[in-house]
């Protein structure tokens, strides 16, 4: 488990991260979302022990991350940096071999072979890193970050440059690591990706704006709507819908009613329409996209 407590980091007069507190539990994936310059990379670096917080603390499996404990604790962390950071003149295999030695892996050759196989890099193992495509480089960097089977994974934009097929296999791999008990923090700009893979989403904009399950975050926006399709002209039942939403609209056989809490309001609206004799064919409750929630919460965040 990795925990940040009141993390603050300033560079001169500028505070980049302010009073950020959150935890990533064992067997959990948390996605860290935020606009450029929100402090995601700085937060990641503090959690990896690369830079010290101005105030606050980081603990890994209950042990405080300090300059003294940093060396040992970094052995438990797999860190994927924003750029792949491969040694260009070395081959993919050589890049992994050096890191295997740094982590003092036993049976390094076997581990590297398995890793190359997992990331479908076996055919490119003898290629120099400079010769690889962007996606291949990202895969090699991911293979490097996971080589020593870390219990804490800090991944900065892991899906960047990956094609959909590889993205899916990486997602599957992260699922496996989660099932194996890893605590995984993923920084991403891709809201859809965050929603697909993360148990919780943390919105960061200098401060931690929110951290919750994607569904719970959506509920905070209170802007869902219920679409009711009828077997007849919907305008005949618009007066019923407007009891719940004065802005309700009809078009052809469809009624659109805005609701604050879809879970609570939808059954009530459907009951009222049914009681009024509306021939209901289909009811659909549509929640706001995570993107809407993100823009709303980030937009409201104090600067």
């Amino acid at each position: 488990m990795i925990a940040a407590r009141a993390l603050t980091r300033s560079f001169g007069p500028r505070t980049v991260v302010r009073d950020v507190t959150f935890e990533v539990a064992r067997s959990e994936i948390v996605a860290l979302l935020g606009p450029n310059g929100a402090g995601k990379t700085t937060t990641m670096r503090m959690l990896a022990g690369l830079i010290a917080p101005t105030s606050g603390s980081v603990t890994i499996d209950g042990v405080a991350l300090t300059p003294a404990s940093g060396g040992t604790l970094r052995g438990r962390i797999g860190f994927l940096t924003e750029t792949p950071g491969l040694w260009d003149r070395l081959t993919v295999r050589e890049n992994l071999q050096i890191y295997a030695s740094i982590y003092r892996l036993e049976g390094a050759r076997r581990v590297i072979d398995a890793s190359l196989d997992l990331f479908e890099l076996t055919d490119h193992a003898s290629a120099r890193a400079a010769e690889l495509s962007k996606g291949m480089r990202q895969k090699a960097a991911l293979a490097r970050a996971l080589l020593h089977r870390p219990t804490i994974l800090l991944l900065d934009e892991p899906m960047s440059g990956l094609d959909p097929e590889i993205t899916r296999s990486v997602r599957r791999l992260l699922d496996e690591r989660r099932s194996a008990g890893c605590s995984i923090l993923v920084s991403t700009h891709n809201l859809d990706e965050a929603e697909r893979m993360a148990d919780r989403v943390a919105l960061l904009h200098e401060r931690l704006i929110a951290i919750d399950r994607p569904a719970a975050l959506r509920q905070r926006l209170h802007t869902g709507h219920v679409t009711v399709r009828l077997a007849t002209a919907a305008s005949a039942y618009l007066h019923v819908a407007r009891q719940f939403d004065p802005g309700a609209e009809s078009e052809g056989g469809t009624l659109v009613v805005h609701v604050r809490d879809g879970e609570r309001d939808t059954p009530v609206i459907v009951s009222a329409l049914a009681a009024a004799g509306a021939p209901i064919v289909e009811v659909r409750h549509e929640t706001p996209a995570l993107e809407d929630v993100y823009l709303h919460l980030i937009g409201d965040a104090p600067q």
Partner: peptide, 14 residues
């Protein structure tokens, strides 16, 4: 400059 130092510094090397 090659951005290879950060992943290296994130390992347990002294």
């Amino acid at each position: 400059q090659a951005r290879t130092l950060e992943p290296l510094l994130a390992t347990p090397i002294a």
